[in-house]
Design a protein around this nucleic acid. Structure first.
Length: 595
RNA sequence: GGCCCCGUAGCUCAGGGGAUAGAGCAACUGCCUUCUAAGCAGUGGGUCACUGGUUCGAAUCCAGUCGGGGUCACCA
């Protein structure tokens, strides 16, 4: 019963086999949901059978329909339009399905697969605050982890902190020059913004120095950049860092700790968490060891200048450097070390990297390199490649100051939701704190849904001048449907109505439609997990909420025609609300009880 | 230039072999003494970039063309 569609496929296959003495693979039989303009719930596409039947599509469809009716008691009726066999199931069949949903322990949670899955997301640099690009990454990562968990996997959310390298040194150098011992606390600034301020300051200083050099001497801009005093200072600081200079390490630790405390605030605002955070500074040396191991095993080779390379020509890629001539590590070396550690930590079956598609090439290389080192776990590496966020003018560029800051964006959305609350007579009974909480839930919902409803693979266009909607195909729309249902259910609880499904009540089309949509939910969770696509959940929830709202406008639940109808509708509404809540949870969106 | 991704309504997006291509926003009409109007019902809006091919059937698959983006660093 739980999978009506599969059952129907099998029935069709066996009926067709009897009629036409040809065997058909049940799973390959094409059955769609019947489009709204036609009568029925499922549609069998009969073109695949006409060759065997040697009859017209219509005759074949009629023949199959009659045979199905005769042998399959759940079918109420069928009709044929051209090559399409539309099938209706009995009301009792759908009520039975509703009853199954009603008695399910945790509808939408799929049985355990026993698989260990790691999801890495966020991956910030520690020299500046998070921006809109990180927000998409964070939302996709967190939501995908939830979805994989609902699909039965054992999921571990991890972060990777790019905490070393020239970028952080730039902030450090600028701070040393102009910081005057100030701290985030002393000037009342969030730690990541504080450090980011000096990163911006570095750019200003070097630009001044470059133009001074170019005025004094006749050199190119590129050359001037490499001679600028602050650039040389940053380089020197990087070397000192690698040498473990205690003064540099102290500064580095202090500034990074400021950044982390800033990030933590943002993570909390968004409502996400990590089981473990990996710092690249702690693992890049392991990566180096792995490169040397590959050199010894012959997987990699050394060039005359001492640099170490891997040849990926046989895999359709180029040669790739793994270790510089001076022995320092490159980006990929660090990822190798972290991957190894991660396998030690979780012995994962699958390790998912949520990283923008500009790094497609990098992850192909990482996987191949680990495979060449004989790491079996490399087969489980999956790059969840998502499209970047564009502004109307194109890509966000931190140097040109066009980045949309994460904290600003969040604050803007929440205050917009707050404005809406203030302008409405509803929610007047809430106190200021409750209003803030609600505005946060709604504003974040609008932002999260705006990003998550789009297919992860596609790029997103964000126009900072147009605020994100609170109406229509939005997060608040779905939340609203939930809040309306909760309001009704609270009233039912008051009169202690015992909610149960009674088989034998008839079903109106709108009631049946909601049951059908509800029954699809576990399949949607599975699909979202298989395709790594929170958008599947988002689109489904919108459809569900929309159909419920439509139902709500036409039919009263509390004042239904009969007691029996009231129970039935209450059960349907209850499960619409539970699925909405479950689905919104997967997206990291709260479901307010009132709004 | 090589490789990869993307072109669907004015805008933002669904649909990814199946019937007459759908939503939201924006514009315009109606609907709150009835379970929350952040809602519902409706109107207008399309050469699914273009050309060819495969198929009973193509927005969907294949090839090419045009347009947009990414990448091909001893940057991360």
């Amino acid at each position: 019963m739980t999978n009506l569609l599969e059952q129907l496929q099998k029935e069709v296959a066996s009926v067709a086999e009897q009629l036409y003495a040809t065997s058909f693979d049940a799973a390959s039989i094409k059955i769609d949901k019947t489009p709204p303009d036609f009568d029925g719930e499922f549609t069998v596409v009969v073109f695949t059978f006409v060759k065997a039947s040697r009859k017209s599509p219509e005759a074949t469809a009629n023949e199959l329909g009659a045979a199905l009716m005769a042998g399959f008691s759940l079918i109420k009726s069928f009709n044929v339009v051209k090559g399409f066999l539309n099938i209706s199931f009995t009301d009792d069949c759908w009520l039975e399905i509703l009853s199954e949903i009603h008695s399910a322990e945790n509808f939408g949670q799929l049985p355990s697969t026993g698989k260990q899955v790691v999801v890495e997301y966020c991956g910030p640099n520690t020299n500046k605050p998070l921006h809109l690009g990180h927000i998409r990454n964070i939302l996709l990562g967190y939501s995908t982890a939830n979805i994989l968990n609902a699909a039965g996997h054992s999921v571990h959310k991890v972060n990777i902190l790019n905490d070393r390298g020239i970028a952080i040194c730039k902030s450090m150098v600028a701070y040393k020059r102009n910081g005057n011992g100030s701290t985030p606390a002393s000037i009342g600034m969030k730690g990541d913004h504080f450090v980011g301020k000096y990163y911006v300051e570095y750019s200003k200083i070097i630009e001044a120095e470059i133009s001074a050099l170019m005025n004094d001497t006749d050199i190119s801009k590129d050359a001037a950049e490499k001679q600028a005093p602050i650039y040389l200072e940053a380089q020197e600081m990087l070397l000192k860092w690698e040498a473990g200079d205690s003064e540099v390490m102290a500064l580095w630790n202090m500034m990074n700790s400021w950044v982390y405390s800033g990030f933590d605030i943002t993570y909390k605002l968004i409502g996400i968490d990590f089981e473990k955070e990996y710092k690249e500074s702690e693992f890049y040396l392991n990566g180096k060891k792995m490169v040397l191991e590959g050199l010894n095993s012959g997987a990699f080779f050394k060039k005359e200048d001492g640099s170490v390379w891997v040849d990926l020509a046989s895999d359709g890629l180029d040669q790739k450097v793994l270790l510089r001539a001076d022995g320092t590590s490159v980006y990929i070396t660090q990822d190798m070390g972290v991957a190894e550690e991660r396998y030690r930590d979780f012995t994962f079956d699958e390790s998912i990297y949520v990283v923008a598609n500009e790094q497609d090439y990098h992850f192909k290389v990482l996987k191949l390199v680990l495979q060449k080192l004989g790491r079996k776990y490399a087969d489980g590496i999956h790059h969840m490649s998502y499209g970047m966020v564009d502004l109307p003018e194109g890509k966000m560029k931190s140097r040109e100051g066009t980045v949309v800051d994460a904290d600003d964006l969040i604050e803007g959305m929440v205050s917009e939701a707050m404005d809406f609350l203030a302008s409405s007579e509803k929610n007047a009974e809430l106190n200021e704190t409750e209003k803030q909480t609600l505005a946060h839930d709604i504003g974040m919902s609008a932002l999260k849904y705006f990003i998550l409803k789009v297919d992860p693979k596609k790029r997103i266009l964000f126009n900072p001048k147009e605020s994100i909607d609170l109406h229509g195909n939005t997060g608040p729309f779905i939340q609203y449907a939930y809040a309306r249902i909760r309001s009704i259910l609270r009233k039912i609880d008051e009169v202690k109505v015992n909610i149960q499904v009674s088989i034998g009540t008839g079903l109106m089309p709108a009631e049946k439609e909601l049951i059908i949509i509800l029954s699809q939910y576990p399949g949607i969770v599975k699909l979202a997990a298989e395709t790594y696509s929170p958008a599947e959940i988002g689109n489904y929830l919108y459809l569900l909420a929309k159909k419920f709202n439509s139902f709500y406008a036409d039919h009263s639940i509390l004042k239904a025609e009969s007691e029996e109808k009231m129970h039935l509708r209450a059960v349907i509404a209850l499960h619409v609300s539970l699925v909405i809540k479950h689905g919104l949870d997967l997206l990291g969106i709260h479901s307010p009880e009132k709004m």
